[in-house]
Structure formats: structure tokens, C-alpha cells
């Protein structure tokens, strides 16, 4: 029993596809959690959800045309990020309703394209709920590259991202180009969603953006501690989720989300207890 745990990890790491998935997944979990803090606090969570549905639509297009998924998805989802941001900033035309319309339309279009071409097969299920088998070497390099860019930009503009998140009016009045940072946050989110989508599943990737920050906010009280806790929690939950998925043969994305849900419940209980004492 004592040797069971190391054995399990040895077995896990002996598969190259698992190692690749763990590298990409860890980076995606990290980036998603960092960006998620701002998205949740700015009440932009719907953008993450909308982008993942658009992402599914673009995957369907790529699959039916037999094109490389990431190369098709990245430009299209970036364009969608720009559009969704404009919609949610514009309260006049009911931004959240518009986002819901776009995301369900993208999903429906994707499903139609798939059923008319390849048909609803196991691939489609993987796209929706995640698999760690999909990673090719070219995907690995692109994903690592994109994640590193996201992390570097986040680190450089951390203080700007804080002020834009906390108080956009003040930030703009004191000379911060808030529109640029909003677009930066939306674009980085789009990139993270595209590279994380196939492992986590299009239906579930947005949970990776929303859950860790929500859990962290239950307990931590400064922006920096929320960001750090969210990042650590996200990576830990991802790891546990993947091990879980590997052992029990459950879909990767769904397993990670369930672990995130458990972490959220745990943090909620802890914060409740802390308030009582």
C-alpha cells in the first residue's frame, strides 16, 4: 500500500502523452487562474464562457475542413474576444444577453457542422468534455509558447491589471489606457481557452477560469494573495484531477472541474468557520 502511490506516479509519468498533457495543463491552469481573478471581479465571467463555446464552433470547422485546430481557432476566438468585450462594455444592448446568444449560436453551429460531416462520434465527446490524448508535439510547443507569453505579460502589467480591475474610472482618469488592458485581458483569456480547450473540453474550460478565483476570494483578502492562492489552487486541482481521471478512466476536464468544485466547497466551509470563530 505504501509503495502504491509512487508506483502510480511512475506509471503515470512513463507515458509521454501524460507528461505532455501535464506540462500543458499545468501552464493552462496557471494562466486561467490568474486571468480569472480579473474576469470574475470585473463581472466578465460570461466572456470566458462565451469564448469557450465559440472555441467549440471553431474546432468543428477545423475538424470538418481537416485543418490544424489551433491555427484555425486562435484567430477566430481572438476576434470573438474583441466582440464579446465590446458587447459586455455596452450595457445599452444588454451585454449578457448578447453574449448568451452568441455562445449558444456558436455551439449550435458547431454541432450542426459536426453532424453533417464527421458525425457525432467519440471525438466530439472529447471536444466537449476533454481528453489528455489529443496532444501532438506541435500543439505542445505552441501551447507552451503561448502560456509563457501570457505569464510574462501578466507579470509585467500586474499593477496595471490591478488598477483596471479595481476601479476603471480612476485608472482611466489618471492616464492608464484602460481599453488596451481590457483587450489584453480578453485576448489572453482567448488564447488560454483555445490551448486548454481540448484537454479540458469546450464545455468545461471556463470552470478553470472561474472556480479557482472564487475559491481564493472566499478566504484571502488582498489582491496579491487572491492571485497567488488562485494560481496554486488551480495547478493543484488540475494535478489531482488528472491523476483521478487516469486512475478511474473519467474524462480529464470533468475530473478537474469536480476537484475544483470540492476545493470551492472546502474553502467556503473554512471561511464560514473562520467568520464564526
Amino acid at each position: 500500500m505504501v509503495s502504491a502511490v509512487p508506483d502510480m506516479f511512475n506509471e503515470l509519468f512513463s507515458y509521454p502523452f501524460v507528461v505532455k498533457a501535464l506540462i500543458v495543463g499545468t501552464l493552462v491552469a496557471l494562466c486561467a487562474a490568474l486571468l480569472g481573478v480579473s474576469l470574475v471581479l470585473k463581472r466578465y465571467s460570461m466572456i470566458g464562457d462565451g469564448l469557450s463555446h465559440v472555441g467549440f464552433g471553431t474546432l468543428a470547422i477545423a475538424m470538418s475542413l481537416d485543418l490544424a485546430p489551433l491555427e484555425v481557432s486562435i484567430p477566430l476566438v481572438l476576434a470573438a474576444a474583441f466582440l464579446l468585450l465590446r458587447l459586455s462594455e455596452n450595457s445599452k444592448i444588454k451585454g449578457d444577453a448578447a453574449i448568451a446568444v452568441i455562445s449558444s449560436s456558436a455551439l449550435a453551429t458547431g454541432v450542426i457542422i459536426i453532424s453533417m460531416t464527421t458525425g457525432m462520434n467519440a471525438d466530439v465527446c472529447n471536444y466537449m468534455f476533454g481528453t489528455i490524448l489529443a496532444m501532438k508535439d506541435s500543439d505542445l510547443y505552441l501551447s507552451v509558447g503561448v502560456s509563457v507569453v501570457v505569464l510574462i505579460l501578466y507579470a509585467i502589467f500586474y499593477n496595471k491589471i490591478f488598477t483596471v480591475t479595481f476601479d476603471e474610472g480612476f485608472a482611466k482618469a489618471t492616464g492608464t489606457k484602460t481599453a488596451i488592458y481590457n483587450i489584453l485581458i480578453a485576448f489572453l483569456t482567448a488564447l488560454v481557452i483555445v490551448i486548454g480547450m481540448r484537454m479540458m473540453g469546450a464545455m468545461l474550460i471556463s470552470a478553470l477560469i472561474i472556480f479557482p478565483p472564487l475559491s481564493a476570494m472566499r478566504f484571502f483578502k488582498s489582491f496579491k494573495s487572491v492571485v497567488i492562492c488562485s494560481a496554486v489552487l488551480s495547478v493543484v486541482c488540475f494535478f489531482i484531477g488528472i491523476v483521478f481521471s487516469f486512475q478511474l478512466n473519467t474524462p480529464a476536464g470533468a475530473s478537474v472541474v469536480v476537484i475544483n468544485l470540492m476545493a470551492f466547497l472546502l474553502f467556503s466551509v473554512l471561511s464560514y468557520i473562520k467568520k464564526k470563530v
Binding site: 471581479l41 490591478f162 479595481f166 476570494m217 484571502f220 483578502k221 488582498s222 489582491f223 496579491k224 494573495s225 487572491v226
Partner: peptide, 8 residues
């Protein structure tokens, strides 16, 4: 908003 006074 979760931010410390000093951060703000």
C-alpha cells in the same frame, strides 16, 4: 473587492 488598503 479583495484588496488590501495598501494595494489600493
Amino acid at each position: 473587492f479583495p484588496a488590501s488598503v495598501f494595494e489600493v
